[in-house]
Simulated assay, not measured.
Amino acid sequence: MEIWVNNDQEIVEFTEEHEELIRRVAERALELAGAGLGSNVSVSVTLVDDETITDLNRDHRGLASPTDVLSFSQLEGEDMGDLPEGEPVPLGDIVISLERCLSQAAEYGHSFERELGFLTAHGMLHLMGWDHQTPEDEARMMAKTEEILAGLGLSR
């Protein structure tokens, strides 16, 4: 699995340990929920501030407010065509607001790392086709997210 992590914000401290956490969570999510995808995939994770994610949320979802995580799947929509032999399948892009991550960690009473892991797992599940449009889907997605995090010592 190829994972590109880009820190495009300067408000919240982001360390190498945080980047490694994102990588571990993404790999575990693929392992536990990526049935049929194999391991030759790629994901981009971009870390932004609230202003940037507000702009993206407005432009792509019509909601002019900050959110915690956005996922842009490459597996939905238009056909990508044939990839060159051996090239990883691009799952898509995850965008996380580190400002929102920090405030939600405080609001929920857990660590920044737990919240960063949660948002990464949530974004990965969306890239792999999971959704939470119904209460049943929401419960299933939350349970899978908690399973991913528990295996990395990030349970509540």
Results as ranks from 00 to 15, higher is better:
residue 115 E to K: 12
residue 113 E to Y: 03
residue 39 S to I: 02
residue 76 E to Q: 14
residue 94 I to W: 04
residue 85 E to K: 14
residue 152 L to R: 14
residue 107 E to N: 07
residue 14 F to A: 00
residue 100 R to V: 04
residue 95 V to N: 06
residue 107 E to W: 03
residue 19 E to T: 01
residue 113 E to I: 05
residue 52 T to M: 13
residue 41 V to S: 14
residue 103 S to P: 01
residue 52 T to L: 09
residue 119 L to V: 04
residue 88 P to M: 06
residue 115 E to P: 06
residue 130 W to V: 05
residue 43 V to F: 09
residue 74 Q to V: 09
residue 143 A to Q: 15
residue 63 L to V: 13
residue 73 S to R: 07
residue 108 Y to S: 04
residue 27 E to M: 06
residue 43 V to I: 14
residue 87 E to C: 03
residue 55 D to P: 06
residue 31 E to H: 00
residue 39 S to H: 12
residue 144 K to D: 05
residue 28 R to F: 01
residue 93 D to H: 09
residue 131 D to V: 00
residue 39 S to W: 07
residue 119 L to W: 03
residue 18 H to L: 00
residue 122 H to V: 02
residue 62 G to F: 06
residue 10 E to W: 06
residue 149 L to H: 01
residue 147 E to H: 00
residue 155 S to T: 11
residue 149 L to I: 03
residue 148 I to G: 02
residue 115 E to Y: 04
residue 133 Q to A: 09
residue 111 S to L: 06
residue 62 G to L: 08
residue 49 D to M: 07
residue 143 A to R: 13
residue 136 E to P: 01
residue 107 E to F: 08
residue 3 I to E: 07
residue 65 S to V: 14
residue 120 T to R: 12
residue 86 G to L: 05
residue 129 G to M: 11
residue 110 H to M: 00
residue 4 W to Q: 15
residue 115 E to T: 15
residue 79 D to T: 08
residue 72 F to D: 08
residue 80 M to C: 13
residue 35 A to F: 14
residue 112 F to G: 02
residue 54 T to C: 11
residue 74 Q to Y: 13
residue 83 L to V: 08
residue 149 L to P: 01
residue 144 K to M: 15
residue 146 E to R: 15
residue 128 M to Y: 09
residue 52 T to V: 09
residue 110 H to L: 00
